[in-house]
């Protein structure tokens, strides 16, 4: 049995005056002990709902969850002492100082007064907050708040660490520092489940990735497995006008092993191909015969971005609102996105 196991999780919200939202729609997860699992998906995919279910915050309508063999829904009180959680929003007390926040969390994990203070001091140093530790969190920058919140998740040296978009809003330096912390925790045997919309983050950290969309897992594997699953190399063309894009699209359709995808800039086309150098030569030849010379042309290995586009039909970071219940109508949503949100 895997350390974390979830089977058939379903959670439906019924917002007033809107169709039901299936935040979880039969989600299955397995995370072996001491590994880092990345839950990758766009906003609204159900990542946060999954984390909230596993961390005892909400009870799914259907399904089973165990952590280290303990039934999460039946015994939340046995789960809480072994988990550390850091959510999408910094859950800190604004009026307490950074140190006081961590000390409070330590006491609520029942570490005792002395140990709580010692651990708070250690974490303050680890997260580079020594100078700010005695100021109320109210005056902290967004990145500092995130760090205090993350430190809060590590107060007990949890056996399982849940991180919901841990590096959202962090500057690059803090992000790298946090990645190091997560890696070293996993190295010491902590099981980590993290959600992210940053493909690079999943690529860098996760041993294993589950791509989720519409409340269920649509693909999983290691990053290499996922990349391989969507075919080999890509060729990519940048063009000068919409008219040229249309022509190039027709040409690439014939050459590619699946539909060409137009990037958000409206000028860059990408298509997976079997033999990249030959395909690129053919494409350039055909374009040239029609008097079109691309601004840029090249070939590359697939990235997780490609995995995402291929599997979901939309990019990982299109929308920027919250993960669960509120499905607001947007002016520009693709059919696919609407389906995911509903």
């Amino acid at each position: 049995m895997a350390f974390i196991e979830a089977r058939g999780l379903r959670k439906t919200y019924l917002p007033k005056g809107a169709p039901p939202v299936h935040a979880l729609d039969g989600l299955n997860l397995e995370v072996p002990q001491g590994t880092i699992k990345g839950l990758l998906g766009p906003n609204g995919a159900g990542k946060t709902t999954a984390v909230k279910s596993l961390t005892t915050l909400i009870v799914p309508d259907e399904g089973t969850m165990t952590i280290d063999g303990i039934d999460v829904m039946a015994h939340p009180e046995r789960i809480r002492p072994i988990i550390g959680v850091s959510g999408q929003y910094a859950a800190v007390d604004e009026n307490l100082t950074g140190f006081e926040n961590l000390e409070m969390v330590g006491r609520l994990y029942h570490l005792g007064a002395k140990e709580s203070r010692a651990r708070a001091t250690e974490l303050i140093e680890l997260f580079d907050l020594v100078e700010a530790q005695n100021r109320p969190v109210k005056g902290f920058s967004g990145g500092m708040r995130r760090r205090i919140d993350l430190a809060g998740a590590l107060v007990v040296r949890p056996r399982v660490l849940f991180l919901d978009e841990p590096t959202t809003g962090l500057d690059p330096r803090s992000r790298l520092a946090l990645w190091d912390v997560i890696r070293s925790l996993a190295g010491e045997g902590t099981t980590v489940l993290l959600t992210t919309q940053y493909l690079e983050e999943a690529d860098q950290l996760a041993d294993h990735i589950s791509v989720i969309d519409g409340g269920k897992v649509i693909a999983e594997g290691t990053t290499d497995e996922l990349k391989n699953s969507i075919g080999g190399a890509r060729i990519e063309l940048s063009l000068a006008s919409e008219k040229e894009v249309a022509t190039a699209r027709t040409i690439l359709k014939k050459i590619g092993s699946s539909e060409p995808i137009l990037a958000a800039d409206g000028r860059t086309l990408t298509v997976p191909v079997d033999n990249a150098p030959a395909a690129l030569a053919t494409a350039l030849g055909e374009l040239g015969s029609r008097g079109i010379s691309p601004l840029d042309a090249g070939m590359r290995r697939p990235t997780l971005d490609d995995v995402f586009l291929q599997l979901t039909g939309h990019a990982a970071t299109l929308e920027d609102d919250n993960d669960d219940s509120t499905a607001k109508p947007k002016t520009k949503v693709s059919r696919r996105e609407r389906k995911a949100a509903n």
Binding site: K52, R80, V85, Y89, A90, A91, D93, L108, Y109
Partner: peptide, 10 residues
């Protein structure tokens, strides 16, 4: 969101 933090603590 601090209620979420409290509710995941033992």
């Amino acid at each position: 969101g601090i209620i979420d933090r409290f509710r995941t603590l033992p």
